[in-house]
Simulated scan of single mutants.
Amino acid sequence: MRVAEIARLTRTSVRTVRYYHQLGLLPVPEERGGWRDYDLSHVARLSRIRWLVQAGVPLKAIAGILDSPAVDASSEDVTVIEDLSGALAAIEEHLAETTRQRDMLTSLLTRARDGLTVSPMPPRMVAFFDRLEAACPDERTRAAVRRERDLVDVACYSGRMPPEAELLFPGPEDGEDDGALAAHGRDTAGLTDAQIRERAADNIARFERVLGPQRCRDLAGHFDTASIRPLFQLIAAVEPGYERMAEAMERLLTEAIARWRTTP
């Protein structure tokens, strides 16, 4: 038979058949009457190649698998086993990555349907910043909200934002939006160190109001305080204007979590 026929029988393409010739996976048949004349052995070989490709075996391993001599059931062909084990590991890794992407897309689709901004942040954080932006009374406040939103976005994307931090962001029922807007509306450039500490303390107090005593204790019980420093170091690095606030927040939040753990 000719190349088009063998391609049709094995549900592949002429180009693929010729590529396998180039790789040495499929023997090149003799010519008869100016055409390459494929026979049953070529069809069988190509079928086995396609079968292994569909199973996820890399092309570079297929020749060794197909050409491995037959062995009895008590023997092991180490090369074949290693090749197949490696192919399986690669497929499992790809499956895990595909599953992660599917879960991310499902979450993003849910947010979009709920009218939330698409973002690396968890939904509660996104909803908080969406509410603040919609309620900003002036452009200066809106710019401050967006700047902080950008910082949190970067922290979430980089993996520096602890998962538990989502709980620290107020929901619409907490009644904290007006206070958060007022804080964003105040200029921080000229604040003294004492005023910076006061502003950071206000943030900690807001966290405690949002969580309540029991949730503060629960959160502190499994919160890894070692994750606090990388978070605020990142914030200070990408936004130098937040450096003093980041230092104050790191210290006060660490102290607060220690206090929550011991509060009866």
Results as ranks from 00 to 15, higher is better:
37 D>W: 07
74 S>L: 11
40 L>H: 06
56 G>F: 01
136 C>S: 14
142 R>E: 15
71 V>R: 04
135 A>H: 05
74 S>T: 15
167 L>D: 10
179 G>Y: 00
13 S>R: 09
68 S>P: 02
199 R>M: 10
137 P>A: 11
116 L>R: 09
137 P>W: 04
183 A>S: 12
46 L>E: 09
166 E>S: 05
238 V>N: 04
243 E>H: 05
74 S>D: 14
172 P>L: 10
149 R>Q: 15
187 D>C: 07
255 E>M: 08
96 A>C: 05
18 R>W: 02
77 D>T: 08
83 D>N: 09
146 R>T: 14
28 V>T: 15
262 T>N: 04
115 G>E: 09
153 D>R: 12
126 V>A: 07
141 T>S: 13
232 F>P: 03
20 Y>M: 08
3 V>G: 03
32 R>A: 10
105 L>T: 14
105 L>K: 01
181 L>C: 06
226 A>Y: 02
197 R>K: 06
258 A>H: 12
64 G>P: 04
106 T>C: 00
176 E>Q: 13
29 P>F: 02
142 R>F: 05
66 L>E: 11
163 P>N: 09
213 P>K: 11
40 L>N: 08
186 R>M: 07
231 L>W: 04
128 F>M: 13
104 M>T: 15
45 R>I: 14
232 F>I: 09
169 F>C: 10
180 A>W: 05
77 D>E: 06
6 I>N: 03
85 S>P: 00
212 G>R: 04
30 E>R: 11
127 A>I: 12
190 G>A: 10
56 G>C: 06
264 P>V: 11
255 E>P: 02
147 R>A: 13
106 T>V: 09
8 R>N: 04
136 C>Y: 04
185 G>W: 03
220 A>N: 05
133 E>V: 13
245 M>I: 12
151 L>S: 11
23 L>M: 12
263 T>R: 02
